[in-house]
């Protein structure tokens, strides 16, 4: 799968085996199918808006995890980082404005607190991975437990309730909800960073071959520090969105997002051994999953009438991942058989 994925700055021209193209087709097919079956119920402004507020949360986390995966590692701690930064941002708000008001300066201060916390957590991950040399999956498993643990210690395990960030969660500009804009902005920035900076270039190279990177003078420690720092920063952004949407911050929110984000990354064509993956693929995977969840939800609700329908999406996500992998397997086989 790795060698078929395009990497920058030399995108492989679109081949029959291009996973981004395949994903775009999958996303479009899913969208078209549900629009046909469910008609107005799916294909409506209201549904678009309701879908739009759901995916940014895990979409932002997926970018963070994808970054680390491209570098040849993984960051399992991003949800812990998101919750910890969200909690501290919430506490900043409730502490300085106990009356529940939300002056702009305080909102900015709370956001700053979240970003600082996210940065520190990310840098600590970078330290564990790049300096100590712990395998990323274990390092971030441990640090994730640590961050979540701090969340428990600080809150005593209860949610910190505040609607002082609701303006971000519920607001919209030109009909586009703020969370979507935040996700789009994050995606754009990271697409640019990965494609058009030396750091991004080195992330791909490091993820392809650590030894060759060392022999080529790539300063892997710096590159990794920056990668995990940025992942932590994105975790904090996700934490702000959590808080703004849920009007509360708690240490165990969205724990399923870790595996969901890994699933999205792989679905989006990020190589699980590193070196390959694009933000465009990732965004398409996020959209595919959102269309699939919402559409299936509606469909199953219509068919069964039971509230259990909301769980069908979970089944469908897993099935989609396996189907995509099996398709990749067969197309790889075909490619191997044909010369060249």
């Amino acid at each position: 799968m790795s060698e078929t994925t395009a990497s920058q700055p030399f995108p492989t021209s679109i081949r029959r085996n291009n996973p981004v193209l395949r994903l775009a087709i999958i996303a479009a097919l899913i969208f078209a199918a549900f629009s046909l079956i469910l008609r107005d119920q799916f294909f409506s402004v209201r549904n678009m808006q309701s879908m739009a507020v759901q995916f940014p949360e895990f979409g932002i986390l997926a970018i963070a995890i994808a970054l680390t995966m491209i570098s040849g590692g993984i960051d399992l701690s991003v949800v812990g980082i998101a919750n910890l930064s969200g909690i501290l941002a919430a506490l900043t708000m409730t502490h300085f404005a106990p009356d529940g008001s939300s002056p702009l300066w305080l909102m900015l201060a709370a956001i700053a607190v979240a970003l600082v916390v996210g940065s520190l957590c990310g840098l600590f991950n970078g330290f564990l991975v790049a300096r100590i040399g712990i395998p990323p999956i274990l390092a971030t498993l441990g640090s994730g437990s640590l961050y979540t643990g701090f969340g428990y210690v600080i809150t005593g395990g209860y949610a910190v309730r505040t609607a002082q960030m609701a303006a971000i969660g519920n607001g919209s500009l030109l009909g586009i909800p703020y969370p979507v804009m935040i996700f789009a902005l994050a995606a754009a920035i990271f697409a640019l960073l990965l494609n058009r900076t030396a750091w991004g270039f080195n992330v791909y190279m490091l993820g392809t071959n650590t030894t060759a990177a060392r022999f080529s003078g790539v300063r892997s420690i710096l590159v990794l520090f920056r990668t995990y720092w940025l992942a932590g920063l994105l975790g904090a952004v996700a934490g702000i969105v959590f808080l703004a949407r849920a009007n509360s911050a708690k240490p165990d929110y969205g724990e399923s997002f870790v595996l969901l984000s890994v699933l999205i990354s792989i679905l989006g064509g990020v190589s699980y051994i590193g070196g390959f993956g694009t933000i465009s693929g990732l965004v398409l995977a996020v959209l595919s999953l959102q269309f699939l969840s919402t559409g299936l939800n509606m469909l199953m609700l219509q068919l069964s009438g039971s509230s259990a329908a909301i769980f069908f999406k979970q089944f469908a996500w897993g099935a989609l991942l396996l189907i995509v992998m099996v398709i990749n397997y067969y197309s790889q086989q075909r490619q191997n058989r044909s010369p060249g």
Partner: peptide, 25 residues
């Protein structure tokens, strides 16, 4: 307090994997 459980688990994992990693380095 039991709220420290996760923190302790995290510390154990980091120490338990960090020491062999340093040794290997």
């Amino acid at each position: 307090p039991t709220t420290w459980q996760r923190v302790v688990l995290g510390v154990i994992i980091i120490l338990g994997t960090g020491m062999p990693a340093l040794q290997a380095q």
